[in-house]
Amino acid sequence: MSPPSPSSSSSSNGFFAICLLHSAIATSCGALMMLYLDELSALGHGAETAGKLRGSTPHDQLLIQVSDSFAGLLLFVVGALLFMVAFVRDRDFQVFFAKGCVLLHAAVALWRVLVERGLEDLASDWPRQLVGDFVLSMSWVLFLVYTWNEKYD
């Protein structure tokens, strides 16, 4: 088997960097959601909205806290998986994975526009979060454009 050509390794380095960046973001956000949800919620939404999002009865509060902790755990696991995927050197897999990530970010953005915009307590936060979804998806789009450009040059 011959060593990879310089063009395939540069693409792999870009994929590696993007995966590590997204892994760091997902892992740190997941850990913060599991451990410091109240502080993170107050920082992101404001103290008044964060209080409303905690629930009104002790049972609701416990249910919301467990649900948010599991969401944080899921995000942490996604970060760990992204870290592992960063070491895959197969160009076809990288392109396939990047397309899937773009679709995932688009689905999250669509959720924010259709659902979160309609929630009174979260209505002020969705535009800022939509920008974050757009920026994260653009990193994958730029990787795909670079890969496509490299393939057809």
Rank of each mutant, 00 (worst) to 15 (best):
P3Q: 12
P4H: 10
S5A: 13
S5D: 02
P6E: 04
P6G: 00
S9E: 14
S9L: 15
S12Q: 13
N13D: 15
F15C: 03
F15L: 07
F16E: 04
A17Q: 10
C19D: 07
L20R: 15
L20V: 02
I25V: 12
A26M: 11
A26S: 15
T27V: 12
T27Q: 13
C29T: 12
C29W: 12
C29G: 00
A31N: 02
L35G: 09
Y36F: 00
Y36D: 00
Y36K: 00
Y36N: 02
L37W: 10
S41M: 02
A42D: 02
G44M: 12
H45C: 03
A47H: 06
A47I: 04
A47W: 07
E48Q: 10
T49L: 09
T49S: 15
A50Q: 06
L53T: 09
G55E: 10
G55W: 09
S56I: 06
S56E: 14
D60K: 12
I64S: 05
S67Y: 14
D68V: 10
D68F: 13
S69R: 13
S69E: 07
F70E: 09
L74M: 13
L75H: 00
L75T: 00
V77D: 07
L81A: 10
L82T: 00
L82Y: 06
F83N: 04
M84T: 03
V85N: 03
V85L: 07
F87L: 01
V88W: 13
V88H: 09
D90P: 11
D90Q: 05
R91F: 09
R91G: 04
D92F: 10
Q94G: 08
F96E: 10
F97V: 05
F97Y: 15
K99E: 06
C101P: 01
V102M: 04
V102D: 01
V102K: 02
L104G: 03
H105S: 08
A106D: 07
A106V: 07
A107M: 09
V108S: 04
A109L: 14
V115K: 05
V115C: 11
E116S: 05
R117W: 11
L119N: 08
E120R: 06
E120V: 11
E120I: 08
L122R: 13
S124H: 15
P127M: 10
R128F: 15
Q129D: 12
V131W: 03
D133V: 03
V135H: 04
V135K: 05
L136Q: 09
S137G: 15
M138I: 08
S139K: 07
W140C: 14
